[in-house]
């Protein structure tokens, strides 16, 4: 722990000094490319040991605040085509009846109806999308994340038909034309493949929280290991009444909501 922090510090300062000097002398351009970062996983991970999950406290979600989605889409170079047909989204806000269409819809309090509810990939424990995929381009990772291998996707869109949550988007055209503020720390996708939320596996590997969790000013999002009874998320699940989306389908989502 100590060692890692020290190393991180030394690396950052060294890099900072170097870049500073370089930039000052005009030799090195100001450089934000993802340098080799210490991955958290050293050895081969044990399948099923961890199950990442997220708890969304919708009571804290403030109207008009889009910071989580903006952070997510920015961090992952999610394109914005500004039309609904080609739309690509990983994390977005919806009204109650769209996110929980099978929950009780009668006499729902105005306060609950007025709130917005985040939708994202549920990283289901029993994921229909990975079952439908003919190439295992989308697959269940060792840590419960439903991952995408964009190198393998054939673009048949079976996963989109199989997903009961509408969490998947297809690159109907070249996404690079619609990334308005690209980051260099994460790749883009290409025309003809399906994409979706990756639970920030790119950040987890560096020991960071997901971008949305970090960006939320109200700390409405809690991310953690559902298999660890002592994790924050499990303690919150223990202490609150929570909901999953369409639980009757047996997909066992890893995203929970406090209403």
């Amino acid at each position: 722990m100590m060692n890692e922090q020290r190393r991180e510090f030394i690396k950052k300062t060294a890099l900072g000094v170097l870049v500073g000097l370089g930039a000052a002398s005009g030799l090195v351009p100001a450089f934000s490319l993802e340098k080799t970062v210490l991955p958290v996983w050293d050895e081969k991970p044990v399948p099923g040991k961890i199950r990442w999950g997220m708890l969304i406290d919708t009571r804290k979600c403030k109207e008009g605040c889009q910071q989580c989605a903006a952070a997510c889409h920015h961090a992952h170079n999610v394109p914005d085509f500004r039309n609904k047909k080609d739309e690509i989204k990983w994390l977005w806000q919806n009204p109650y009846q769209k996110v929980f269409p099978t929950a009780s819809q009668q006499f729902v309090s105005k306060e609950i109806q007025d709130r917005s509810y985040l939708a994202l990939c549920n990283h289901c424990a029993e994921s229909p999308c990975t079952k439908a995929c003919p190439t295992e381009a989308t697959f269940k990772r060792w840590d419960g994340i439903v991952a995408m291998d964009y190198h393998r996707c054939i673009g048949c869109r079976f996963c989109m038909a199989a997903c009961p949550y509408g969490s998947r988007s297809f690159n109907w055209q070249d996404p690079r034309t619609a990334i308005h503020d690209p980051v260099t720390t994460y790749p883009t996708r290409e025309q003809g493949v399906v994409e979706k939320c990756n639970f920030c596996s790119d950040r987890l590997v560096k020991g960071q929280q997901p971008a949305c969790t970090e960006a939320c000013p109200e700390q409405a999002l809690t991310f953690g290991d559902l298999n660890d009874p002592r994790s924050d998320i499990r303690l919150l699940l223990e202490a609150n009444e929570t909901m999953q989306r369409k639980p009757e389908l047996g997909t066992k989502p890893s995203v929970f909501y406090i209403i």
């Binding site: 003919p134 190439t135 381009a137 393998r152 996707c153 054939i154 673009g155 297809f170 025309q191 493949v193």
Partner: peptide, 15 residues
């Protein structure tokens, strides 16, 4: 298919 050039993946990674 979005990526017909990868059609053979269905047979290369039989699922």
């Amino acid at each position: 298919m979005g990526r017909p050039d990868r059609l053979l993946n269905i047979m290369l990674y039989p699922s």
